[in-house]
Simulated assay, not measured.
Amino acid sequence: MAPPRAYWKGSLKLSLVTCPVVLYPAATSVEKTKFHMINRETGNRLKQQMVDAETGDIVEKEQKGRGYEISKGEYVEIEKEELEAVQIESNHTIDIDNFVPRDEIDRRYLNNPYYIAPDGKAGADAFAVIRDAMKDKDRVALARIVLTNREHIIAIEPLGKGLLGTTLRFPYEVRDEEDYFDDIKSPKISKDMIDLAVHILDSKASHFDPSKFKDEYETALKTLVKRKAAGKPVKVVEKEEKPDNVINLMDALKASLKGGKGKSTKRASSSRPHVARKRPAKKAARSSARHRKAS
């Protein structure tokens, strides 16, 4: 098997200690099923064209430019040379600025992961020293790196024999949770309910094991493509209707603890405000009539 192609090459620098390193993307979407747009009549693949939003005319390559919308429908054009002037040229160095406790890093800032490995034998000793020192103090390095003409902050931590580098989002890229949580009510919950919920959590206690993650949709897509390519019929499954009734929260907790689903016929009392209404019979009848007409 050929060695993977490095995404970035340069040096990892800690004060006066420098070692050559390479970066490899730690995640990939190569295995995901992807589709192309095709012409149903010819079976040929389609290609996209840029069209003027106002005139509808096709815009040729030499006519394309970049513009920033300063007001509705008004753009300031940015030339390629002007854009290049503000881009940061990489010095191919990962400059470590400081080290922080691992648990202080807000997970919302985590972006793209990369594997960092020594580039050749020359810097293997320096690489090991930096890695093992971080492992000993359980610290994460915060460094700066230039990728695709933009400077990024990257968090670096030991991972096996190498290092894991994860680019971090800038504060302006992370939304404030208060904008979404301020309107959440704070109802009074009884201790019995909390205790039941805790029992459910305990009964489902486990350990993080990504090998158990199953992408059911991806599996279904692969099966669909395989059957279609083989000329086999594909059965369309009708979606099941969700239950109309809502049961009492305490009953739901008790049923969950027992592994049951509760009785769908049990209605909420007047003290239970969330009661779903059944679908009107007329609507269902109209749907059936439309189906017969279409047939």
Rank of each mutant, 00 (worst) to 15 (best):
A85P: 00
A85M: 10
A85G: 02
V86K: 11
I88S: 13
I88W: 09
I88N: 11
I88G: 09
E89S: 10
S90R: 14
S90W: 10
S90A: 15
S90K: 13
H92P: 10
D95F: 07
D95V: 06
I96R: 00
I96T: 01
I96C: 00
D97Q: 11
D97S: 10
F99G: 08
F99Q: 08
F99H: 09
F99L: 13
V100T: 15
V100Q: 12
P101Y: 03
P101S: 06
P101A: 02
R102P: 00
D103T: 13
D103V: 13
D103F: 11
I105H: 09
D106R: 12
D106T: 12
R107T: 14
R107A: 13
R107S: 14
R108C: 05
Y109A: 10
N111G: 05
N111W: 03
P113D: 05
P113F: 05
P113M: 13
Y114V: 00
Y114R: 04
Y115C: 01
A117V: 14
P118D: 06
K121G: 09
G123F: 12
G123Q: 09
D125I: 11
A126P: 07
F127V: 04
A128H: 07
I130K: 01
I130N: 00
I130D: 00
I130G: 00
R131H: 03
D132I: 02
D132Q: 11
D132V: 03
A133L: 07
M134H: 14
K137G: 03
D138W: 15
A141G: 05
L142K: 09
A143C: 07
A143T: 06
R144T: 07
I145M: 13
I145G: 02
V146H: 15
V146N: 15
L147D: 05
L147I: 14
N149D: 09
N149W: 04
N149H: 11
R150C: 00
R150M: 02
R150Q: 06
H152I: 03
H152G: 03
I153G: 03
I154N: 00
I154R: 01
I154E: 00
I156P: 01
